[in-house]
Every structure is written in structure tokens, then in C-alpha cells.
Design a protein around this nucleic acid. Sequence first.
DNA 1: TGGCGATTTGGCAATATTACCAAATATTAA
DNA 2: TTAATATTTGGTAATATTGCCAAATCGCCA
Lengths: 108, 108
Amino acid sequence: MNPDQRAGFERRAGVFKALAHPTRLFFVEQLAMGEKCVCELTATVDADTSTVSKHLGVLKNAGIVADEKRGSMVFYRLKMTCVLGFFSCVQKALEEEAKAQLAAVAGG
Amino acid sequence: MNPDQRAGFERRAGVFKALAHPTRLFFVEQLAMGEKCVCELTATVDADTSTVSKHLGVLKNAGIVADEKRGSMVFYRLKMTCVLGFFSCVQKALEEEAKAQLAAVAGG
DNA sequence: TGGCGATTTGGCAATATTACCAAATATTAA
DNA sequence: TTAATATTTGGTAATATTGCCAAATCGCCA
């Protein structure tokens, strides 16, 4: 892996890093249903507004969401919509995993 | 977000967390081309064998890869193949991002 | 202008991740 | 059994992430 390759992998890893938090994952799913302001998102989780803001900043910085200020409120929307495909992939994989483990327990 | 939901998001976030490292991302791409032993993977990156082993352990623990011992060597293979779809998604998104930024600079 | 609500930013302590070294384990060969 | 190779595990220091509080911004309205 040369330095250029490395830089590319680091950038891509950054996107995964941004998704590697339950709250942020939850926000992405929320935004998949349509744009929401920070206040709405804050109301759905048990966390300080500043914490929510920082999570959204991470997602924005990774290019996953975009924000738009309207009045005194800031609305976030999902920008990298293809990430939703990740979720079903992971979901299915985890379900299969669970099923396999169950079978192993039952069989063994 | 109730505790059950939270647990689900934490589990899924775990998969992203496992992918959130350039070296691990690189390994996944390598394994997409076919199984490889730890020694082969170690040779492709500039890191200690123990470091490589731990990275592979993270991927394995997340259910992304599977390992099989044959003789004194351990072979890893890609198990959650759907993650490859992530890569093209992220890749394309990053390219579009770069293009947009370029246009912004040129236009502004 | 002054105050209020919405959001971001700075700072900090707690926690988690990472990478190396050294040591342990396991397998093969002599 | 002993030596050599492949891999994992334990320990540890450096670094990064997280979440709260307090303070700063920004926009709106009286």
C-alpha cells in the first residue's frame, strides 16, 4: 500500500468512521425519511443539544449529510443516500449470523 | 430511541466501526479477490504481524470475515460480501464531492 | 437595542482505539 | 524432544472519541 493508496483508504475509512456510532446511525435513518432540524433530532435521543450538534457535524464533515439554515433553525438532510444500502446489508448479515448461531446451539 | 432500538443500532454501528480503519478497509478489498493467509496480508502493509492479527480479529468479530486454520497458517476470507457495495457508494460519493468542490473553486 | 430560542464551539474528563514489543500457543519438521 | 515458523494474546503508551457544561453566535421579535 503506497502513500497515495493509503490516503484514499483513509478518506473512505472516514466515511465509515462517521457511521460508526449508534446515535449517528439513528440520525441517518431519521434523515432518510426526510429533512429534520437539530431540535427535532435532539428530541428523539437522550443527549445534550451540543452533543447532537457535534454528531451532525461529524456526518456533515464526512459528506453524508448536508445542512441548510432557515431562520434560526438548521435543517439536515441525507446527502449520501446510497449509504442506506449499507443498512440492509448489515441488517441481513447480522440476522443470518444470529440464525447460524442459533442453529449451532440447537445442533451442538 | 428505546433500549432495544439502541442495542440494534449499537450492533450495526459495530460493523461500521470495524470498517472504520484504512488498513482493515484495505484487507477487505484484498479478501474480495480471494482468501489470503495472515502472512500474505502482513506482507502488503507496513505493520507488525500482531497488529495485522488484531485488525483481522476486529473484522472477524464483526462478522465481516471468517477464518480457517489449515496447518500452521490461518486463512481469512470475506464473509459479508455485500460490504463491497459500500465501497463503490463511498467512492462515487467522494468523487462527486471532489468534483463539486472543484467547480465551486473554479466558479467562485 | 435587548432579550430569547436555536445552534455551534471550546474545554475537559472519561473512555476507547491503535500499534508496538514481548511472551504464549500451535503446528510442522528434524 | 527441540527448533523453527505462523499466529494470537497481554501489556502499555500514545492518540482519538465521546458527552457534558459553559460560553459564544446567529436570527427573530418586541
